[in-house]
Write a protein that binds this DNA or RNA. Structure first.
Ligand SMILES: [Mn+2]
Ligand SMILES: [Mn+2]
Ligand SMILES: [Zn+2]
Ligand SMILES: [Zn+2]
Lengths: 154, 154
DNA sequence: CTCTTAATGATAAAGATTATCATTATCTAA
DNA sequence: TTAGATAATGATAATCTTTATCATTAAGAG
């Protein structure tokens, strides 16, 4: 059944992510904790583009003993080790999205309802690199956000 | 002499900007004040990509009576009427740059020295609009930031 | 000039992230 | 397996930036 395959895949992704996280921690002389496993699991199971507060509230249901600061600190660590991306829009609370195997994408952001649409255009990606090179600039990463009105709101 | 032409041009730009600002204020039933003229002048004379705090400190020299809140409020107004653009990078303080006649550009941002290089690629601009349209999304504005190492730092 | 009310400026409050620190728990190495 | 060094946690305080408050000032229409 399709639903089982999806669940299996999700579990595989999380196991792989746990490995990446544990290796990253080990490499930095940091420790693996119960809290860290819970936070990573919750983060990968949760909705995309989540705030620390939302993640904290989701975790609180089953793990009321885990503190906000701990969630905050560890989302930071997930970013460091490449398992999460930070999204800052205006003065709003920072959002985070799980990242798996370096899949990069950009965002269309609706000015009315706030919806995020994930997009990618290889041609744009290549032109960005060219543009950087033309300016003697070594690109590392980029952020492209297009603001406007989504399908429902336009 | 070239220096005089540059100064003349700068003064013309500021006069035009003052007109735009005054018209915007009038249209909204707001008032023109001495402080607003000082802030606009200082903003257009100052370095690009300035923070409110930096602008406030620059103004303080000649106008120590003008308050921080007033500078902050009015930089906001300058953004509203299209004479300034907001630049938010990570958790750093918001920076603002004067905008004259809707000239849009994107930024290359050095991860080492923080330098901003202004760039524009018409091909990328067009592809962005196409990408939006392909997703039934009506683009209003966008933000493209390429992070990496600049000429000096690479 | 008068009067309405927007703007100012000092300060407080809010909102988000980061630091502090006593306590707990991990994990290395004996 | 256990002891010991020290990283992590969690409650809370501190910080840092932006926004709100409010008594006072002043713009500008009439
Ligand atoms: Mn996304
Ligand atoms: Mn610029
Ligand atoms: Zn929408
Ligand atoms: Zn540089």
């Amino acid at each position: 059944m399709i639903i089982n395959i999806i669940i299996k895949t999700a579990i595989m992704v999380i196991n792989k992510a746990q490995d990446i996280f544990r290796n990253y921690l080990r490499g930095k002389g940091l420790r693996n904790t119960r809290q860290r496993e819970v936070i990573l699991d919750a983060f990968f199971f949760a909705d995309k583009h989540i705030t620390v507060e939302e993640l904290f509230n989701a975790i609180k249901v089953k793990h009321p003993e885990i503190g906000f600061a701990t969630v905050h600190r560890n989302v930071g660590l997930l970013c460091e080790c490449g398992l999460a991306d930070e999204i800052k829009i205006g003065n709003k609370k920072t959002r985070y999205e799980p990242k798996y195997e370096q899949r990069h994408h950009d965002h269309l952001i609706c000015l009315k309802c706030g919806e995020f649409t994930e997009v990618k255009d290889e041609k744009i990606e290549r032109l960005q690199d060219k543009l950087a090179e033309a300016n003697n600039f070594a690109p590392v990463r980029h952020k492209l956000e297009i603001y406007g009105l989504c399908k429902k709101c336009r």
